[in-house]
Design a protein around this nucleic acid. Structure first.
Length: 415
RNA sequence: CGGGGAUUGGCGCAGUUGGCUAGCGCGCCGCGUUUGGGACGCGGAGGUCGGAGGUUCGAGUCCUCUAUCCCCGACCA
């Protein structure tokens, strides 16, 4: 990408209507645009980051045999009445609207009901199971109070996976696979060291616990008690002696931390499948219940969490896997020879499929340095007439000093 | 939904006890000098002060209502 073609601009001042660090930085750097409280648009750079996070999640979902779908955002009322989740008294953060003929519609806040409903007709026999489906889609929740920038919005991008298994044992086996996939995802996103599996309330349909993945952060809404040695935590919501014993945590080993929920996994039993009439026939011809699980990851929230955690006084610091580009390329001088050399390196990197931002704007170098830092690009590469052929000055975003290296070493650095 | 704070050019802000053509910085446009850490000089454009109503000779400044944003709390599949 050439910066002269990018319409967004960075700002020297931070927005006054945001106090959350993630929103301030992302707006200042031109990644997102605030439409209203809790609702943000993703501008070119922000869209790239969002897509990269999505892609990491998508790959891990595909690896555990899940199939991607895209369900509708508009939802008919009747399927939600079957599970008694239409009434505002039962679920109070629905956005609802009507067709011109008066028919009620819901605007999707989660998709258990429609997913189950869509499987009716496809799942009849034990031979049809298991089924694992997921989607990455905007969710809409009418929160009483949006807050903390991308961390709690009314419209947000979420990955939701649903599993359908023959029985509890099969379900549990898949559930554990999902947990492993989640660990891998957070590792790839660069927050693996700070993200912990956390026991939480199992919800009304389960006697056991659910699992959350909580990333340590001072701006987190949740309080967790963390056993750092064993990398297990328990949410304050269910923190009591009985549960500690059940899980096998010792009070003396636990320390309280603020954290942000970046994922959750629920065992749903057969509540939804039964209520919506999704069953299978076993090999004895008997009608059986299907055991369901649901598993969420907030993609846009993750972007906020990462922006929040990885920054300094100069700006954002993206982990290399999700940075809008790996390299920020600058020509130090405006003379034709140096510019031609820079263009050649840009072409070379592009050929090698390395994401690179070429700051070809006709501005002073100081501004380019400042923007390279603010945008949080992991590697800054400078072409100067001082250096030899095939040589480039490279500095990592997290380091202070620059090194002169060969093109080939630059390529190896980001491969 | 309760409490607190805010709203003045694109962005960040100032605006005395009501008083003349509403200021400043950044950004933007033009000309020139600059060019390895957000340069500088000169000259420009751009706001009717969130909205509605009221008090007054006169309102950005006072009153009432209202909208929106932020924070704390409550809530949160």
């Amino acid at each position: 990408m050439k910066l002269s073609k990018l319409y967004t601009k960075t700002s020297k001042s931070i927005p006054s209507d945001e106090s959350a660090n993630n929103a301030r930085l992302l707006i200042q750097a031109g990644f997102i645009h605030k439409e209203m409280a809790g609702v943000y648009s993703y501008l070119p750079l922000g869209k790239i980051v969002l897509d990269k996070i999505s892609e990491i999640v998508r790959q891990e979902m595909n690896k555990i045999g899940a199939l991607e779908v895209q369900m509708s955002v508009l939802q008919p009322r009747d399927i939600w009445e079957k599970t008694d989740r239409w009434d505002d008294k039962k679920v109070d953060n629905w956005f609802k609207t009507k067709l011109n003929n008066g028919q009620d519609l819901g605007i999707g806040l989660t998709h258990e009901e429609p997913i189950v409903d869509s499987l009716i007709g496809f799942i009849n026999s034990y031979k049809d199971l298991p089924v694992y489906v997921y989607q990455i889609q905007n969710k809409f929740r009418n929160e009483l109070r949006a807050k903390s920038g991308l961390l709690r919005g009314r419209e947000f991008l979420m990955k939701d996976l649903y599993s359908f298994s023959l029985n509890k044992e099969d379900h549990q086996q898949y559930y554990d696979e999902v947990l492993l996939a989640y660990y891998k995802i957070y590792e790839k996103l660069g927050i693996g060291d700070d993200t912990y599996r956390t026991y939480a309330d199992g919800g009304i349909f389960s006697s056991s616990f659910s699992d959350e993945f909580q990333t340590l952060s001072e701006v987190g809404e949740d309080l967790i008690y963390l056993d750092k040695k064993n990398k297990i935590a328990i949410n304050k919501e269910i923190y009591n002696p009985e549960n500690l014993k059940k899980i096998g945590l010792k009070e003396s080993e636990l320390e309280p931390h603020k954290a942000i929920e970046v994922g959750n996994t629920f065992s749903l039993g057969s509540k939804y499948t039964d209520q919506l009439g999704l069953y299978y026939t076993d090999n004895n011809g008997q009608k059986k219940s299907i055991v369901m699980g649901c598993y969420g990851i907030g993609i846009s929230r993750l972007m906020g969490v990462i922006a929040e955690k990885f920054s300094d006084d100069l700006g954002l610091i993206w982990p290399i896997n999700i940075a809008p580009a790996k390299i920020y390329l600058i020509s130090v001088s405006q003379d034709q020879k140096t510019q031609a050399k820079t263009q050649k390196l840009y072409d070379l990197l592009t050929q090698k499929c390395i994401d690179v931002i070429y700051d070809d704007r006709d501005i002073r170098i100081g501004e380019k340095f400042a923007d390279a830092d603010l945008l949080g690009i992991p590697i800054r590469a400078i072409i100067s007439s001082k250096h030899g052929e095939q040589e480039v000055a490279v500095k990592q975003r997290t380091e202070k000093t620059e090194k002169i290296i060969k093109y080939i070493d630059l390529i190896n650095l980001v491969k």
